[in-house]
Design a binder for these strands. Sequence first.
DNA 1: TACAATCTATTACATCAGTAATATTTCAGG
DNA 2: CCTGAAATATTACTGATGTAATAGATTGTA
Lengths: 122, 122
Amino acid sequence: MKSLPQISEAEFEVMKIIWKYAPISTNEITDRLVKTTAWSPKTIQTLIKRLVTKGVLSYEKQSRVFVYTPLVDKTEYIGQESNTFLNRFYNGNLSSMLSAYLDNDRLSEAEIDELRSLLSKK
Amino acid sequence: MKSLPQISEAEFEVMKIIWKYAPISTNEITDRLVKTTAWSPKTIQTLIKRLVTKGVLSYEKQSRVFVYTPLVDKTEYIGQESNTFLNRFYNGNLSSMLSAYLDNDRLSEAEIDELRSLLSKK
DNA sequence: TACAATCTATTACATCAGTAATATTTCAGG
DNA sequence: CCTGAAATATTACTGATGTAATAGATTGTA
């Protein structure tokens, strides 16, 4: 399993937009993020640039503007992050995590039912 | 819910030792970590120091050496990290995570049984 | 009591991430 | 074909982290 590029938290916010709307231009990315974050357009620019450098995005010059497409699959990326997380905090398995959540009463009855239901459907 | 101090990945490795063996001296921490990591004792020193600065550890001078005790609860810290993680990647809930794991066939039949069993016990 | 061994404290330096500002390039329109 | 607005590229600066090295303090022992 190849290791995907590292994507920082801020970069991930950018990626969420791109995964959702790709192919998408710099301006559209910026417009959308300016509404949901406190970032300057310049900051967003920088983040996009870094994502290109890291190989997370490719772009195509359409006349004067760049249009971006993700090179990394969202599900795959989140899966990798999840593995890293479980390894770091829960011996690498979801059961340990669930067990801790149950022990510490972090789940409501409704959530527990939801989990049961998901598992029974499988 | 107060927000706990930020603990970096390397610092967390140090904390795992301290959580397990506290109260514990610098030397004992170092000895243990030197065996399981590739870190220089100097590096371990630095990490311990930073944890003290951040308020994650307190120490007591016992004659010549320092003996450390955690100020942050492990379960609480992991709980906070888990929340952050779920918020970032799974809309803040464990069901979404489980759902993704099931959808992507990331769980063996045995693991699924384990999860079911945990939930039925509750 | 002075010194060497041992601790602890301070300083170092590179990289990444957050957050921009400035500089340069490039079209589209006058 | 030149120019200014718009786009992209380069540079900047701070704090955190990884990873130590060096400097200073302390103390048991000769």
